[in-house]
């Protein structure tokens, strides 16, 4: 996996995109598209929707590259956030609903797997792993469901069978505990 290597190159590639250099966008595509499609697919489920998300995201990266500055975090974080946001927007448009019936059927295995897989593959040496591990199981699961699969408060509450108000407040507390742990 090429994550975390040549990070500075992404900065340079974005700067070149801002100047209208298509080869730089192609470079970002060659290096990141496979990962980004998979990331989007984890949220929107269907490969063709994931590709649509990535297509829109690359157009946005191209038109907004001039806005990227170091005070917006790493170039990778900025690019990945664009893909995540496009995928979440698509969910809000209700397009994942096509697969809701199937998803519900697969909930116990397929769905849990995505969250579990992300948790199991998370770098054990990372501080994030350590700090997530320090949370209760259910809080960790709630946070992973939100980040990994793009679930809303309501969906998390429904799936974990916890009242909505309670869900909101414990997710907020868990996020605060994570920040403290990672500080």
């Amino acid at each position: 996996m090429s994550v975390n290597v040549r990070v500075n190159d992404l900065d340079e590639a974005l700067a070149s995109c801002a100047k209208g250099d298509r080869a730089a966008l192609r470079e970002i595509y060659d290096r990141e598209a496979g990962q980004l499609i998979a990331l989007a697919q984890r949220i929107v489920r269907r490969r063709e929707l994931a590709e649509e998300v990535v297509q829109e995201a690359f157009i946005r990266i191209w038109t907004h590259a001039h806005q990227y500055k170091a005070d917006r975090g790493s170039a990778r974080g900025w690019i990945y956030a664009i893909v995540r946001n496009r995928a979440l927007n698509l969910l809000r448009d209700g397009r994942r609903e096509y697969t809701v019936e199937n998803m519900d059927a697969l909930r116990e295995d397929g769905q849990a797997d995505e969250v579990m897989a992300a948790w199991q593959k998370l770098d054990r040496a990372s501080r994030l792993y350590e700090c997530l591990a320090a949370l209760d199981d259910v809080k960790r699961r709630g946070i992973l469901m939100a980040y990994v699969e793009g679930y809303s408060h309501g969906e998390i509450a429904g799936r974990l069978r916890i009242p909505l108000g309670t869900t909101k407040s414990w997710i907020r507390r868990a996020l605060s505990a994570l920040r403290e742990c990672l500080a």
């Binding site: 990962q35 990331l39 975090g73 790493s74 992300a118 994030l128 990994v148 994570l178």
Partner: peptide
């Protein structure tokens, strides 16, 4: 974003 970015590397 940076805090949660390692989760994006799990796909």
């Amino acid at each position: 974003r940076e805090r949660f970015l390692p989760l994006d590397a799990t796909v």
